Amino acid sequence: MSSVTSTLALPQRQNALVVAGPGQLSLHQDTPLPPMAPDMALVRTVAVAINPVDAKMLDYSPAVGSIHGYDFAGVLVALGSDGPTHLSIGDRVAGAVHGNNSLEPRVGAFSQYVGATAELLLKIPDSMSFEEASTLGIGLATAGLALFRELEIPVSIEALIDRPEPEKDATPNAAFVLVSGGSTATGTRAIQLLKLAGLRPIATCSPANFALVLGFGAEKAFDYRSPDCAKEIRAYTRNGLKYALDCVSESDSAQLCYGYNEVQ
């Protein structure tokens, strides 16, 4: 059994929302706490976020008897023996876990205590609320994997650590990156990462969200409903769009992303 550090008296059981069937959750008031592996941390939940994956996985792939939920934020109350040294009991943290998981049925965000891989937890700055931090997990992880591993943008994620927010716009020869669905949770995080990386993020969204994406760092916003959207993007980038990230991931949005990048 691994050594676990905690300065708090922890309960043996907790309240949790457990998968009861397709599209169905049930409140259980006697669910055991998740087991602690050496690389895990236990977090007392303060806030959770709702993702499309919460609904889609519950509808189409329910793991009956498993705790549901992915994104969370809370207070670190226990740390496994192999946990990272930058974390301490009492830290305010946020992260994501794979809820609705038949292989780990006692791990899920919709519970009073969440068992998470300690290395993947994010320490919450004092200026950020638990509610705000709870929205980071899936969106930030998705944006990071998509940009740095799949698209392989010309900046490493390690290079962004401790990099200050840029005080001026990207250089004119920096690569354009389209974030389709820029006002989504993943989209806004992708825009911030791209801006920090010194690239030129542009975004599609509804006009009602133009101010939102521009505030997060998009250089230009385009109305995805406009029949001239692709033409406007090609004109703005002078047919120089280098990358496209589809944060909507439906057939129409994928087709539009290809259309934006067609040279006319």
Rank of each mutant, 00 (worst) to 15 (best):
L193F: 15
I191R: 04
A203Q: 04
A208V: 13
G187T: 03
F216S: 06
R149G: 01
E165Q: 12
T204Q: 10
E167N: 05
N209F: 01
E232V: 00
K242H: 12
K242L: 07
F176A: 00
T204A: 07
A146H: 03
P201G: 05
G215I: 11
I202A: 01
E150F: 10
L160E: 04
G182N: 03
A211C: 06
A230L: 09
K168G: 05
P172D: 05
R234Q: 13
L194P: 12
E165W: 04
A211T: 14
N209P: 10
S156D: 14
L193N: 01
G215H: 12
K195R: 15
G198W: 00
A185S: 15
D223K: 08
A221Q: 10
G240L: 12
A174P: 07
A197Y: 10
S156L: 00
R225P: 03
N209Q: 14
G182S: 11
K195M: 02
S183C: 03
I233L: 08
R189P: 00
A197Q: 12
P201M: 07
P207K: 09
I233K: 06
A185F: 10
S180L: 15
E158F: 08
P172F: 02
I161T: 14
E152K: 11
G182C: 07
A170G: 14
S156H: 04
A235K: 12
L199V: 04
V213S: 01
Y236K: 03
K195E: 01
A174Q: 13
T188F: 00
P207M: 10
S206G: 15
Q192F: 06
I153T: 09
E152D: 15
T237Y: 02
G198Q: 02
P164W: 11
F222Q: 07
A197L: 12
T171A: 09
N209S: 15
E167V: 15
G182I: 02
F210I: 02
A218D: 13
R234S: 13
E152G: 12
P164T: 13
L178R: 01
V213R: 01
A221W: 11
R238W: 03
A211D: 15
R238M: 07
K231L: 11
L193I: 06
T204N: 05
K231Y: 06
A190V: 07
P172V: 02
D223V: 04
D228I: 07
I153Y: 01
